[in-house]
Simulated assay, not measured.
Amino acid sequence: MEKLKMHSPNLTQDNIARIRELFPNCVTEAKGEDGAVKLTVDFDQLRQELADSIVEGPQERYHLNWPGKREAMLSANSPIAKTLRPAREESENFDATQNLFIEGDNLEALKLLQETYLA
């Protein structure tokens, strides 16, 4: 029997690993809130790696900001420890249909479905 993963993927660390493959000198180690060492991105170094001239600081550009945007991005990339369970008694002909009804928080449901439906 195949064991189920009880956590969604850690997208932040996956993205850092991808950046590390392309720009190894832009990834460094730092202590997390729990005291464990984890990989982080040196954004100033990455910004310089991607520029064709000396980068002094943030450049002006168009962007969309709102209160809580950083927290929303952090929550979108953080893993969760939840699972989807079928409600057979509330479903009609559950075993024969190909339909799936999901009730819950949208972000959590999308995180849970992401790995299953990733093409």
Rank of each mutant, 00 (worst) to 15 (best):
E2K: 13
L22I: 08
E71S: 02
K82R: 01
A17Q: 14
E29P: 04
K5F: 03
D34I: 11
A30V: 11
E71N: 07
A51W: 02
N25F: 00
P79F: 03
L107A: 09
I16H: 03
N106I: 05
T12R: 09
D44Q: 12
V37W: 01
E33F: 11
E92W: 13
V27K: 04
S53H: 14
Y117S: 10
R85G: 05
A96R: 13
I54Y: 15
L110W: 05
L84Y: 08
E92Q: 12
R47N: 12
M73R: 07
S53A: 14
S75N: 00
R20H: 14
K82N: 15
G32K: 09
D44Y: 08
E49S: 15
L100W: 06
E60Y: 03
N99Q: 14
Q45C: 05
I102V: 05
L100A: 10
S91I: 01
P58V: 00
N99A: 06
T83D: 15
T83M: 13
K111T: 01
T40N: 13
T116K: 04
E33Y: 11
A87K: 15
I54A: 13
I54T: 15
P58W: 00
G35Y: 02
D44C: 11
G104T: 05
V37P: 07
A96H: 14
D105N: 04
E21D: 13
A81S: 14
E90K: 04
P67H: 11
A17L: 11
I16K: 09
N77C: 02
A51E: 05
H63Y: 07
D42A: 02
Q59R: 09
P9D: 03
E71T: 04
T28L: 09
P86C: 00
Y62G: 11
W66I: 00
K38M: 08
L118H: 02
L118K: 13
K69I: 02
H63W: 08
F94Q: 06
I54R: 13
V27Q: 03
E2G: 08
V37Q: 09
E115H: 11
P24K: 04
M6L: 12
F43W: 04
M6V: 00
A17I: 05
S78T: 10
Q45Y: 00
E56W: 09
R47K: 13
E90G: 02
Q114R: 13
L107W: 03
S8W: 02
F23G: 04
L22A: 15
S75E: 07
A119M: 12
A17G: 05
F23L: 12
D44F: 11
C26F: 06
E29L: 06
V37K: 15
A96P: 07
D95K: 10
V37E: 08
H7N: 09
T28F: 12
N10R: 03
N99E: 08
E89F: 06
P79A: 00
I80M: 04
R18W: 00
L46T: 08
L39W: 08
C26P: 07
S75K: 00
N93Q: 13
P79K: 03
E71K: 02
A96K: 15
D42Y: 01
E108Q: 11
E21V: 09
P86R: 15
N99P: 00
E33Q: 12
L74T: 06
L113E: 05
P86H: 05
V41Y: 01
